[in-house]
Amino acid sequence: MIGFIRKDLAMIKSNFKLLAILTIVYLGMSLAGQMDISFILPFMCVMIMISTFSYDEFNNWNAYVVTFPNGRKNSVKAKYIATLLMIVIVTIITTILSFIISYVRTSTIDYINILEMTFGLIFGTLLVQTFMYPIIYKFGIEKGRIAIFIIVFGIVISGGLLSQFIDLSGVLNALSFLENYWVITIIILSVLLTYGSYRISLAIEMKKNF
């Protein structure tokens, strides 16, 4: 499986320059006191990972890997691990930079705020990944884009409609006790979502005919 991870990392290697430039932009804007764009690096990472799917598809890599030992399973697993790896690394970089920025600008470090942001970033990017990967595995990157659009649209509409008819405050109140445990809640939720997403992608890929 390590081979598949190496392959994804080798593919995004060419994007490192872009990430470096973005880091500098991020640093510059933050130090100049412009808006907070700490999300940019982790989200770029997910987007770059998603772009690797197009290359895979273009050369029928996903069919080719079937000929490797445990190719179907390991290639999906590796995609998730490589993405996690990228998200974690970039989030750590963002966090460290945030400490520095915070210190430079205010001479103090706002630990709580920054750590909240870190968890928020990891959770947000994971959400995107967990949501998109199974769709891409199912429909391919081209049709997947349309599918994602339709699904997001559907959720927003139905959510909007639901809130018209159902009083959600009860649910929100019930959930409010989680506020005190948000760190642990986010960690558990992230793990569950990622694992669930991985299982769905795997099930799709294991059955696929190319």
């Binding site: 598949f4 392959k7 080798a10 593919m11 290359y55 890599w61 080719y64």
Partner: peptide
């Protein structure tokens, strides 16, 4: 098994060096 398949291969932005690194982690 070793295979050569029509129109199926490594993503084209990779190099022979990459293939070597990747395959070392795939085949015993």
């Amino acid at each position: 098994i070793g295979v050569v398949l029509d129109d199926m291969f490594f993503p084209e932005i990779l190099t022979a060096q990459d293939i070597d690194n990747v395959m070392r982690g795939i085949y015993k």
